[in-house]
């Protein structure tokens, strides 16, 4: 029965794709190098909708462009921290994701996130964490702490990189010193500033592109994202990813329908499409981050389904949290600290 249904679907897809031009188009605005070409090919073949991908490099750029209007995009993929801003500024249309057929595949813990209660607006894309990468052939002590970066052991000094992300760096330092991300506690922020200023001379760089530097053993530690740590380990088996026990932040990117979208039906078709396990599997296979779809593991490469960078080990789950964007006042202090740090 299921097989018959599938072949019927395939048949429909084929006829549809031969009418591709008539079937409409879709403009997706996504982070660069984040959209699996296979996923898009499959979507185009099944629906006949022609997808145009345009890249952005930061949440700030994406927000600025979408807010300015006249962009021509139908879907965008902001991070959870920015999603409430997009909503409050009225940039997102309610796609009723919770009523889409494939919503049943979304894992329970992802059905009602703080940043999109009831999950009506956003379809899950991928998620990950901010932690530390360490080359254990250089240092083999405890790596599950931001102390690796902020109070580095002797072996690591001068071989440390920090992702040039103001929010991630300062929030991590706040967590390390016993606060919460985006805390407005001035005493604590002063300590954060002093700690960062003290630690900075022990760092080598504040840069992206760490995978090749871990592979070439130019770096031995970094504050970075889990997906990169996973890819670095495939190049250099000594690389491990630490989940700081004092607390670390999680992030999730989600697909939203823009208010001024022209291709609303096509956009909704895409949102539903990516919630199917085999498609979510394709997504993760390409970008190497986890998704939120039950059953997608079966469609991922073997090495991913068991990777400790992708599947958070039980004992560290509790320490990870999703933090919203900081309030404007706190953001000002973040910027002041960041400027002070790099003057």
């Amino acid at each position: 029965m299921k097989l018959a249904y599938q072949s019927l679907l395939a048949g429909v897809a084929l006829t549809v794709s031969s009418l591709a031009l008539a079937a409409g188009e879709l403009n997706l605005y996504n982070w660069g190098n984040y959209t699996s070409p296979k996923l898009i090919e499959k979507f185009e073949a099944e629906t006949g909708i022609k997808v145009t991908i345009t890249d952005y490099d930061s949440n700030e750029t994406a927000l600025a462009k979408v807010r300015a209007g006249g962009h021509g995009f139908d879907l965008a993929v902001p991070s959870h921290s920015h999603l409430p801003i997009w909503m409050s500024e009225g940039l997102i249309a309610n796609a009723r994701v919770d009523q889409m057929p494939n919503f049943k595949n979304v894992a329970k813990e992802w059905r009602n996130p703080d940043w999109d209660p009831g999950r009506q607006y956003s379809a899950p894309w991928q998620w990950g964490s901010v932690g530390v990468m360490v080359d254990t052939s250089v240092y083999n002590g405890d790596i599950n702490t931001f102390g690796i970066i902020l109070d580095p052991p002797e072996e690591l000094i001068g071989k440390i990189n920090v992702a040039p992300e103001m929010n991630d760096v300062i929030s991590s330092a706040l967590l390390y010193l016993g606060g919460e991300a985006c805390s407005g506690d001035k005493e604590l922020l002063r300590k954060v500033r002093d700690k960062l200023v003290e630690a900075k001379p022990k760092w080598k760089s504040m840069d992206y592109g760490v995978i090749e530097k871990f592979a070439g053993r130019d770096l031995a530690a970094s504050l970075y994202w889990n997906g990169a740590a996973f890819r670095a380990r495939l190049k250099n088996p000594d690389v491990r990813y630490g989940y700081p026990v004092e607390g670390y932040s999680l992030w999730a990117d989600a697909v939203v329908l823009l208010k001024d979208a022209k291709n609303v039906e096509e956009a909704k078709t895409f949102m539903n499409f990516i919630m199917a396990p085999e498609n979510a599997g394709l997504m993760s296979e390409f970008a190497r981050y986890a998704n939120s779809i039950v059953g997608s593991e079966a469609f991922m490469p073997e090495d991913m389904a068991t990777a400790p960078e992708v599947v958070v080990p039980e004992e560290f789950i509790g320490a990870g949290k999703f933090y919203p964007t900081c309030s404007p006042e706190v953001q000002k202090m973040y910027t002041a600290i960041w400027t002070e740090l790099q003057k």
Binding site: G32, T52, T54, D57
Partner: peptide, 25 residues
């Protein structure tokens, strides 16, 4: 270019800029 481009108007540099965070192939 990054700020002016409309949908589907990536140039090689903006395409690369998007890749910067992940690693350039």
């Amino acid at each position: 270019t990054e700020f002016v481009k409309s949908a589907g108007q990536d140039t090689l540099p903006t395409y690369m800029l998007g890749q910067l965070r992940r690693s350039i192939t």
